[in-house]
Design a protein around this nucleic acid. Structure first.
Length: 275
DNA sequence: GTCCAGGTTTTTA
DNA sequence: TAAAAACATGGA
């Protein structure tokens, strides 16, 4: 991978492992929107544009300082996906096919609070509607950063909300789960900062103290925002994929990079074989 | 009108 | 315990 500072921005080139569209549409994040082939999103309260080009991915209007401090870690650019793909496809022909199809996906290192609320909203819901609810939540309660950008509201900004307050979001039955998450995070009963530092089973159990957070949502939070790459979220697509592609398999332990393997399986199941 | 959507909780047998 | 049903909302 090559990183160049050109034209007032940053160009990521010479890698197979940063496919912008796949990374933004694999369901890991809900604040990136496609616009004329570019993907525009919000990272740490700042707008970021990812512009796919023949020679790589260009991020316009980014200072070197912001790139190093924010975007390099957020896009996980120091992780060697080639080595990971080699590891997870070893002795696994199914995974080899999945990786062939999903190559280019990177996992973004998202904010834990935002990821928690986002995946609470995701349950029994579809991606366009999830994005709409999150967008309304940010506009309603998040700080206005200018240029139409709103920060994701903090737990403090969301404290003492009632279901009626959240009605304009049209989040449905999930509103009471959001309220429970706000309460338990603000009280310290669930310590989000500790999640990356404690063992995976404890981190999962901690998140599941929140009403509305089950195993799947907890795994998404741990995988997408708490550096637990062994977390393997099992949703309807993965259930179908496992049943069809691994009919004899009982467990969902795909190793220390199971979560990355899960992403390849997810897009493979959804887009390629339409299980 | 019916079905379904990156599930979880509540109810029922 | 395990399997259904309920949960809000909106697009297909």
């Amino acid at each position: 991978m090559k990183i160049s500072f050109i034209d007032g921005g940053v160009l990521i080139s010479e890698t197979k492992d940063f496919d912008v569209a796949r990374s933004c549409e694999c369901g890991q994040c809900f604040r990136f929107y496609e616009k004329d082939g570019d993907y525009v999103g919000v990272v740490q309260n700042k707008a970021v544009t990812l512009s796919p080009r023949a020679d790589g991915c260009f991020m316009p209007n980014v200072s070197k300082e912001d790139f190093e401090a924010i975007l390099r870690p957020y896009f996980d650019l120091d992780r060697d996906y080639d080595a990971i793909v080699s590891e997870i496809t070893k002795d696994d022909d199914v995974m080899r096919n999945a990786c062939l199809y999903g190559r280019g996906i990177r996992l973004f290192r998202q904010d834990t609070w935002e990821t928690l609320i986002s995946f609470i909203i995701s349950q029994n819901n579809n991606i366009p509607r999830i994005k709409g609810i999150i967008s309304r939540l940010c506009a309603m309660l998040g700080s206005d950063m200018g240029n139409g950008i709103f920060a994701f509201p903090t737990p403090k900004q969301m404290q003492n909300l009632t279901a009626d307050d959240l009605a304009p979001l049209r989040a449905g039955f999930r509103a009471k789960y959001i309220i429970d998450a706000v309460k338990k995070v603000n009280s310290g009963e669930v310590d989000l900062k500790a999640l990356p530092l404690i063992p995976y089973p404890e981190a999962k159990a901690s998140l599941m103290k929140i009403c509305g957070v089950g195993p799947k949502v907890a795994d998404c939070v741990l995988l997408f925002s708490a550096s637990h790459l062994e977390a393997f979220p099992v949703d309807v697509w993965i259930k179908r994929a496992l049943k069809t592609l691994y009919p004899q398999r009982e467990d969902t332990d795909f190793g220390r990079y199971g979560g990355i393997a899960q992403q390849y399986l997810f897009v493979y199941a959804r887009k390629q074989i339409k299980l």
